[in-house]
Design a protein around this nucleic acid. Structure first.
Lengths: 149, 149
DNA sequence: CTTGACCCTGGACCTCGCTCCAGGGGCTAG
DNA sequence: CTAGCCCCTGGAGCGAGGTCCAGGGTCAAG
């Protein structure tokens, strides 16, 4: 089976060599083997894992969370694995819902803005406003009770 | 008009005093005025702005991006403001789409997992796998071309 | 055997987004 | 006047996630 050196792996995944080593230090990605010289050798499984890490990161997961996700594969308790996956699903769904609220708020403002004319009429400016007395209150992610923690 | 000291402002927004000062240093939030003593005074407009900053952050915007969003309110060119808002909207929509792909991938794996029995049968473990030759390839955010930047 | 690309370790350094001093002043109540 | 609380500035420190050496070994091609 063809294996990759750290440079080839990094290149194929579009990351820096140092980043690969950093992930290893962080317990995210170990080389499949090492040569006697100490050189790391990776298989395509590690490449896939590395790509997964990057994808998950762009979706807002921290390395710690990704480590948890990946740790599932070491876990032999299938029921626990499934519950963990469900928890991550709920997490993802919450992120989506929050972003959808912001999307709707933005879309509404854009729709209401004529795109020309008096700046004081522009709902976007009014909403973001740092001066108007009606200020901003748009893409609201639940904060109707100023007194509540 | 009633104004707030930095402590009251921070409390009402649910952030630390140091955070407010940090945002000021970062050009995100200036006090409405200062007393001769140097004390910062804020109006409810600043409170709203601060809350907006926090909301936007929880939605994954960096302080730099938030600064851009807020800078729009200083911009008197309504058309440009509208375009910037549309760009942010597109950004948010992309994040949502990426998360939806991950959600669907996770949901599929969960649905396919019986939740008990042989771990080697569990699709979640197989997908996350750090050892199986079929490895993971699930919540794919477009990466079918290993050779493309 | 030499050259050049590649790799090793260990540790310093960087940006972000805070968070926490130290050392001092302002303001109000008793 | 003295507490006691709030506020000021400047700067250090921290965790996350890298990024960049220095100093040295490996290895394949010529």
């Amino acid at each position: 089976m063809e294996t990759l050196g750290i440079g080839a792996l990094a290149k194929r995944a579009g990351v820096g060599i140092d980043t690969v080593r950093y992930y290893e230090r962080s317990g995210l990605l170990a080389p499949k083997t090492r040569l006697r010289s100490g050189y790391r050798r990776y298989s395509t499984a590690e490449l896939a894992r590395l790509r997964f890490i990057r994808r998950a990161q762009t979706l807002g997961f921290s390395l710690k969370e990704i480590r948890e996700l990946l740790a599932l594969s070491r876990d032999r308790d299938v029921a626990r694995v499934k519950r963990a996956a469900q928890a991550k699903l709920a997490d993802v769904e919450q992120r989506i819902a929050a972003l959808e609220r912001m999307r709707d708020g933005l879309a509404m403002l854009i729709a209401a803005c004529p795109g020309h004319g008096d700046p004081t009429e522009c709902p976007i400016l009014r909403a973001l406003g740092g001066e108007g007395p009606d200020a901003l209150d748009l893409p609201c992610a639940s904060a109707p009770h100023p007194g509540a923690p």
